[in-house]
Nucleic acid binder design. Structure first.
Lengths: 364, 364
DNA sequence: TCAAGGCGCTAATACGCATTAATGAAACTC
DNA sequence: GAGTTTCATTAATGCGTATTAGCGCCTTGA
């Protein structure tokens, strides 16, 4: 239909059969020679040379499309996200995943298809029709905080290979996630070691496995270190943070732990509240961030210090997800299909010993 | 060979012949129905519906490779870069292009295939074989500072549609670039308006169209504003900047213009030298940057001000390149295939009137 | 009643390459 | 010299889709 080659006087690209004619052999022989597939085959050196010469003379280059068709597999991995793929505001947060995926895919000789379906149809991210498109790839990676279960189950039933980036609760769903539980517990341990006993954990309202894991880690860490757990967990939609902050100070809270999600709303809001209150960190209040994306870590309010907490190994998650997906595609047995990667602790400058009891930083 | 289906229970992807069997028609009919190619054909509405139902039920998606082999389009655009696609250090510099491309591709209902030049063959980025893979897409976008000409010419000869992101010198090569010449000239005009007459332009050593354009713009701007052109252009490999800076001050230079490329080496080096010399900007020296990527603009040394200069409309270049490519794919006539987009001037805080003649900022 | 034409659908083929089964010929065995 | 084993090559087929050239049937007009 729109094949440009039909133009007319343009010389058709030479194919194997052209070489075959020139060299006086069959197309099969040409394929064998050029492919180097001497497995179980043997070719006369003289014939091989004739073919190579002819190929050289005609300027033969293999057609990658035909090659892939014949090889019954198209060496393409899909990447599908349930949020719009590249929204500007989360760019920094998800970019390392993409970078890691791309990097490893390239290393493995796979091309990457970015499915843009989520943003297109407008019917929301999980549109089943758009999701089905991923099947053009040999396998697919999924990521995004919130995910529709049903269409995925369909794919799973069909035996289509896929891997989530991020932990999932559904059984039998392969994923590569981050060990938020251990990392969060470690942060609480660090605060306790610095002397903090009254802490608040500020998290967003929504429900996602990664949020649940952080909360679990925080609670676990608090319990095992003697940190108070009453009132520890606080949910926010990003509003009323001024009031919250004030009440915490009234209560003698000396450290705040903040969940960092892709939007970063909680942290940004709290940072603004702290600056408005004229507080300095960590002198007046210690601060820790759970899961700042590597390389996009912000600066603490009023201080310019790097946030203490931990980094999420986004890039490595992307890489590992590709490796796992390829194992699944090749049908490997006995692969561990649910992996949690350790998070890198960050010893920033926002944790200090607590201020003396009774001292109200707002009075100074 | 690498046929993944053998795993056992994985259901093969349904093809048109499967649909045909279920619907009780021929594969041809399935193709006609799904393709919507009713040109000169007529199909019973009832038959059409049966086919559509079967396709839906089986979860059919067309194989992009086979589709291409049969000389039809598959609604996929390629994106190929000659540097590794996502090297960490240039991440911020190229990301907006990717974002723009993705955004527009999604809006146009096209998926995106990321081809990584540096992939399997290991023979380097411009490896011809690796480049040919792009043909599985309907068309392809290219970007990267340095580019091998020959393989591209091959594609062009075959009538394969492609667009460069970034200006190219070769005639007949479609591109979407940035108007560095005008933007650079405008920066020089701005410096002249502030009173600067003795200026230096620091550029990197390599040769790329975008660098040549900036230099041309600088010279043009200098000539038309009475700025000295002798010794204006200085090339650097990033070393010896301390000495350079000292000699400039000796010569009474009051402003420096720096080329910002994807590596940002020149700017980073100069910034360090300025800080080491204890200078403040713009009090002691005015500074302008040619082509800071939007959103990743750094801060001036010792001042914290935003660099004056101009922004490169990377995102818009990405978007426009997609639009142009689609026009080429559909074979539109009379399309302007070589486009330069205007750069956004940035009135930052690093340009001030020159210090009084004879005053040496190092003595203070 | 017959040719002309429209309708609804399919058989056959092309796309370019990889792979398997098979063939003919030469070399070797006893 | 009949049977067996290598060796070198090829015919045939498949990969999944698009397109071309019909085929049989039913109307229509004369």
């Amino acid at each position: 239909m729109e094949n440009a080659q039909r133009g007319g006087r343009r010389r058709r690209r030479p194919r194997q059969s052209d070489i075959a004619r020139v060299a006086g052999v069959s197309q099969t022989t040409v394929s064998l020679v050029l492919r180097g597939t001497t497995i179980g085959m043997s070719l006369a050196a003289e014939t091989r040379q004739r073919v190579l010469d002819a190929a050289e003379r005609l300027g033969y280059v293999p057609d990658p499309v035909a090659t892939r068709l014949a090889a019954a597999g198209n060496a393409m991995l899909g990447l599908y996200t349930f949020s719009a793929t590249f929204p500007t505001d989360v760019a920094h947060s998800y970019y390392p995943i993409l970078a890691g995926v791309e990097e490893e895919a390239a290393a493995q000789g796979q091309d990457l298809i970015l499915f843009t379906g989520s943003s297109r149809s407008g019917t929301g991210a999980g549109d089943p029709a758009s999701l089905r498109r991923v099947r053009v790839a040999d396998g697919c990676l999924f990521f995004g905080r919130h995910v529709p279960d049903e269409p995925i189950r369909q794919l799973a039933e069909d035996g289509f290979p896929f891997v989530y980036i991020g932990r999932r609760n559904e059984p039998d769903v392969p994923y590569v996630g981050a060990d938020y539980v251990s990392a969060s517990a470690a942060v609480l341990a660090g605060l306790a070691a610095a002397g903090h006993r009254r802490v608040r954990y500020l998290r967003e309202h929504d429900q996602a496995p990664s949020s649940a894991d952080r909360e679990e880690g925080v609670l676990r860490g608090a319990r095992s270190t003697g940190t108070e757990t009453a009132g520890l967990v606080v949910r926010t939609d990003g509003t009323g943070l001024n009031g919250l902050l004030a009440s915490w100070l009234d209560d003698g809270v000396t450290a705040v732990v903040v969940e960092q999600t892709d939007t970063g709303a909680a942290l940004a809001g709290l940072g603004a509240a702290i600056e408005r209150a004229g507080l300095r960190c960590p002198r007046d209040l210690s601060l820790a961030v759970l899961g700042a994306p590597v390389g996009a870590r912000g600066r603490a309010p009023g201080g310019g210090a790097v946030f203490s907490g931990f980094d999420v190994p986004m890039r490595e998650m992307g890489r590992d997800a590709v490796r796992l997906l390829l194992r699944l595609i090749e049908g490997a047995e006995g692969v561990e299909t649910r992996r949690l990667l350790p998070c890198e602790p960050v010893d920033g400058g926002t944790i200090a010993p607590p201020r003396p009891p009774g001292r109200d930083p707002r009075r100074e």
